[in-house]
Each structure stands twice: as structure tokens, then as C-alpha cells.
Design a binder for these strands. Structure first.
Lengths: 188, 188, 188, 188
DNA sequence: CATGAATGAGAATTCATTCAT
DNA sequence: TATGAATGAATTCTCATTCAT
């Protein structure tokens, strides 16, 4: 059956995600992932050749989900509105999956994730790139190198989530204020 | 000698920093740190009770240096100028010590650094907090919760450095543009 | 197999016993135990979480075997006869397993064995306690606090074995004489 | 001066004794002994070539003190009285120095103490041997191989002290009862 | 003689990965 | 396929001993 193993595979990935958040990559042995996933240790190796690949797949899995948030631009809406929608969506995505954010943070800094996958992880921003480009053409956004603008935006997203998703830090900043600051930063 | 051990201690910390950047925390055995520092393995344990403490001290060491950048506000200068100075200084500090930035990134996400030290690491931003407060009183900066503004600013700094200091990514964004965007984001 | 691991577990315990006698606890690395048991180092840790537990289990194993010597009193026999049987049995048990006695001696004085296990190690003497109690009721044994009598008896056993099982000391004292002295010591 | 170092030497031995009781031989590093003795680590090695020798000297030191208890027989007294005096003296010696007993117990089972020193440790019993011999000649004590009798006696002493000096065990057995049992055991 | 920092051999322990069942 | 016991290389950490001061 072409779906063979899909259940187990998912179970392993999900168990791994949970444990990675809880204990960090290097304190999460494969044996514990197996136990949490309800499989045997050897089974993991039927799906993933080694731990590195497993971790990379987690990274990719999250990035893929992130991508699905922005399949196409809503060209029928004003640019500013699209911008708001985009930022709100991505931030809410991680707020709803705080473990995803935690994992991404851990992995982004880790040498385990291949350069290739890290590059691929930046894809979701391409949609934003298009949006910014259009905005620049309409002279709504500063005429600055687009990469610089994207860096600026992603930094803002990151720092917001960083505070929001970190334990010990419970003050819920206003998302609207934050998005407004970002917009004011980039707008013409 | 009253400077007992300062030489060895420093040698160990510096060797560790270099290796941490090169290979990541968990691929850097204590034995290699010792070798790189030109000491015996046991010597490390004369200065640091275990690896965790050593790593934490590296984190603290960097944060302490960061702190020295902002001992006092230059109240004789216009706020906007102070703001530029501050941001430029912090960003240039890390640009001049790219390994420091790399380390901080690795460690900020790591469960090895104690909560206490992470808190302490946020001190440098307190100077900025004062500046923002004054700016708000003068209605130069948006009347938004000060924490939100600081998050916004630090996010911008982070993302800029992230691009700048990451290997594989050599396009040097314009610092001026970046700072301008930050300012436009927060200004009234 | 429902006997999972019994083979390896036993092999490890037995190898450890042999080495402990030969070289003492602190001169017996886990790696050597593994080699002697014909397993890999890691295997030991599949059965015993650490060295301390392994050592404790050896202690318990021996004490458990000792216990089986005295499952029930032979109430059909005269008390004095039972007394002889008991003492002879326990002394012969250790004479037949001189390494067990050596181990017990080493471990009894060691802070590695938990208080709980040490307590449990005194169980075998409880059978003797019953016997003494009956003897006292029949006014065959001195009317002295039973614990004192048991201490006296176990001391006698210990010292006999100590001489008998110690290397360098080959003079075989007469067991009968020894038991008679013990009896004379406690009899009314 | 011929007393050179006597102070330091004693300080080291005493500190070591204290620590050995508290933590066991193998959990007492030389560095801690030095600290407790108020000397530098290197100083220890001016008095004792290595740890083994230091430990052996502790053993010898205690045994020597034990010896001084019985410099000569009190031939003016009845044998039974001498016997009582002897046993009481030795038991009270260790009751007054419980750490000595603990050390002796630890060391007797340890391969660190040389065979030579262990043999020497049995000297104190020679006085008792003489006493027993005389008693046998007077047909007061059983005509059994003298070594067997000595083993019996020392076992009784040991077990009494064992209970008395062990932590967790606070019931104070009556010394008189114990000595009476020993006597009854050996008397004709 | 006194000191204690430096050393590195050696010990315990972990864990990714394999492979027989 | 699924399993998990077995494995040993790799890692952290300890501590007896040395030696320059």
C-alpha cells in the first residue's frame, strides 16, 4: 500500500518534536523517541537512516507547513491588507504551535540542519518578497534592496515570537502594535 | 601572583569560543578545548567545575563585554543621534566579533544557559530602554508599551546580524538603511 | 524468551563477583567486568543502571542464597541439634563459597551498600532468633536480650569464617570446637 | 630537630582518619585530606610517599595504640579478672574511638593494607594468647587449640563493636552480658 | 620544607546504530 | 517489517602525583 508506514512515520516525527522541545536535541536519545512513538528502536531506522536525517525531516516538515499558509497572493486586496494578513498568519501559526517555533529556533542555530534545508526554509518568505516588490513598484514601500527589507521583517517576526513563545515571559505584547511598527519601518 | 590563573582561564575560554563556533557545543569535547588551549584536560576542571559552567561563563563573558558599550547615555546629543550611535555600536560590536554573535545565537536557544544568565544577558538593552522612555516623553517615539518597542528593536538587530554573520551569506546589507527602518518603525 | 537476559545478567554478576574478590571493588572497572562476562561495556548498563546498583545486587544475591538455607525450623529435632544444624549450614555455605564470604566482608564495611540492603542482609538470622526464643522459653539458653545473643552468635560465625576464608591462613580450625564454644556461651 | 614535622604528620593522619570515616577510602581525595589538615597537597608527599602508605600508617597507628592497652599481664589478679579487664579494655578503647573501629573495619577488608601490617595488627591478641595459655594450664579454659579460642574471642569482640559503633543501631547491648557469654564459651 | 596549579591516565556512563529473531 | 538487546566508541569528569616557585 502506498501509504505504508505513514502512521508510524508521523508518530515518530511527532514524538521527536515533543521531546526535542522538552529536552533539547542532545538530550533526546533515539530510544526515548521510539518509546514515546510507541515503536521499537529499530523501527525508526526503517524510516530514517540516522538521527541527523530525522531531525532534518522535522525541520522540513515544519517549514512545509509554514509554506502552506501562503499559497497565493490575494491580489484583490490592498497591499497593506495583504501585508497584515501575511504577518498575522505567520505569527499566529507559531503562536498556535509554540513547539514548532522552539524547534526552529534550536535547529536554525544547529550545525545538524544541512545548508540546503536551511535555504529551503526561507521559501515562505518568497511570497512576502513578491508582495514587497509590488509594494515598491507602487511606491508604497521604501525603495531599499529587497533583501534588506525582508531581513528587517523576519527579524521583527522572530523577536515577537521569541518573547511570546519563551517560557518565563508571559506578558502578551500587542500583535497589532508590532505589525504597525514593522509597517512604519518599511513604508515609504 | 594576584592574577592567578587569569592566563590559563582566558586561554581556555578563548579556545572554547573558537571551537564552539567551528563545531557547535555538542561536537566540542572538553579534551579538544584543552588541547586548543594548550593545557591538560584536568586543568579546565580547576577553573570550571563542569562543561555547563564553562559554557555559561562564555555567555556571560560576551554579555559583559556588550554591556561595556553603553555605560552612559550621551544626553548632550539629540535622541535620534543617540539612537543611531547605540544601534551602530551594538551591531558593529558583533560584526567585529562574529564568533560572539554566533555563540550567543547558539546559546540563547540552548537549555544549557541558566535562566538567571539569560536574564542578565538582557541588561544591555536597559540603556536603550531609558533612551526610548525619554523619546516617548518628548513624543518622538510611539506611545507603545516600552517592552514591545524593545522587542521590535532587538529583533531588528538580531536579524541584521543573523544575515551578516551567517556563513554562506555574504551580501552586506546597508546598515544605514536598516537603522532607518527601525527608526521609522518606532518613531511617532 | 521469558528468560530474557537471565544468561547475560548472571554472567555479569558472576564475573563481577570473581573480579571483586580478586581485586577489590575499587580496582575492578566496569570495562573489565564486561570483558570477563563476555559482553560489551554497554550491556552491563542494560541490566544495572550503574556500578553501585550492580554491587548492591551482588550483595543481595548472596544474602538471598543464604536465606534459602533456612526456610523452616526442624521442630521435630532437639533445640541443640537444630542449633548445630543451623550453624554448620551457614558456615559450610560460606566455606563452599569462599568468594561469597570475601564479598560480604568487603561490602558490609562499604558505604556502597544501602542501609536498606544491609538490613535485609540480616534476615537470615531471624530464623535463628526464633530458635533462640524457643530455647529461652525452655530455659535452655540464657535469659539475655535476644539481640545480644544474636550478635554474639554472628560474631562467632564471622570470626570463624574470617580465619577460614582469608588467604595466607590455612590452618583449619575445628568447626565442632567452635560451635561448642558458641553453645556454651549462650546456654543457661 | 628530631621532632621535625611531627605536628604536620599528626595533623595529616588525623585529618585523614576523620575523612576516611566520613566518606570511605575511595571517596577521600588527597587534596581534601590536605585541606582538612591545613597543609598543601604537596606537603603530604613529604611525609608519605603515596596514598597507600598513608593509609597503611593510619592502620598501624591505631593498632599501635591498641597495643599499649596491654603492656603486661596483671599476674597478681585471678585469671577471670584479667580476662574481664582485657576484654573490657579493648572494647572500651574502640567505644571511645568509634572512628578507629570504623577505619579498622574498612581497612581489614581492603587490599590496600599490606599483609605484613595485617599480621602486625594481630599482635594485641598475643597478650590474650598468653592469658589463655595460662588459663588452660590451670584447666580453667577448654583444652582446645589456642588459635581457635582466640578466633572465638576476637569474633565476639568484633560483633559487639560492630553493633555498637554502627550508625542506625542505637540499642546499647550490655557489655557484661556479652563478656559473660564469651567466658562461658571458653571456660572448661 | 611548603605549596597548589598542572597534568593525564583511567573510570563511569551514554547513546547512535546494528542485526538476529 | 518490527523489534530491542547488544555493542563500543566517545565523552565527561576525577584524582594521585609531580614540580616549579
Amino acid at each position: 500500500m502506498y501509504l505504508y508506514g505513514m502512521k508510524k512515520r508521523e508518530a515518530i516525527l511527532n514524538a521527536a518534536i515533543e521531546l526535542l522541545v522538552e529536552k533539547g536535541i542532545h538530550n533526546t536519545p533515539m530510544s526515548e523517541i521510539a518509546k514515546a512513538a510507541g515503536t521499537g528502536m529499530g523501527t525508526i531506522y526503517n524510516y530514517f537512516p540516522n538521527k541527523e536525517v530525522l531531525i532534518n525531516e522535522i525541520y522540513v516538515k515544519i517549514r512545509k507547513q509554514e509554506e502552506t499558509l501562503f499559497l497565493e497572493l490575494r491580489t484583490d486586496l490592498p497591499i497593506k491588507t495583504q501585508f497584515d494578513i501575511y504577518l498575522t498568519a505567520i505569527i499566529e501559526f507559531f503562536i498556535n504551535h509554540p513547539s514548532y517555533f522552539n524547534i526552529i529556533q534550536q535547529l536554525e542555530a544547529s550545525p545538524i540542519i544541512t545548508h540546503e534545508n536551511k535555504e529551503m526554509g526561507r521559501k515562505p518568505i518568497e511570497m512576502m518578497a513578491k508582495l514587497v516588490q509590488i509594494a515598491q513598484q507602487n511606491r508604497i514601500v521604501k525603495n531599499v534592496d529587497i533583501d534588506e527589507i525582508l531581513i528587517f521583517i523576519s527579524g521583527a517576526i522572530l523577536s515577537y515570537l521569541n518573547r511570546y513563545c519563551t517560557p518565563y515571559e508571559k506578558k502578551h505584547s500587542s500583535l497589532k502594535n508590532h505589525i504597525r511598527m514593522v509597517w512604519d519601518g518599511i513604508k515609504e
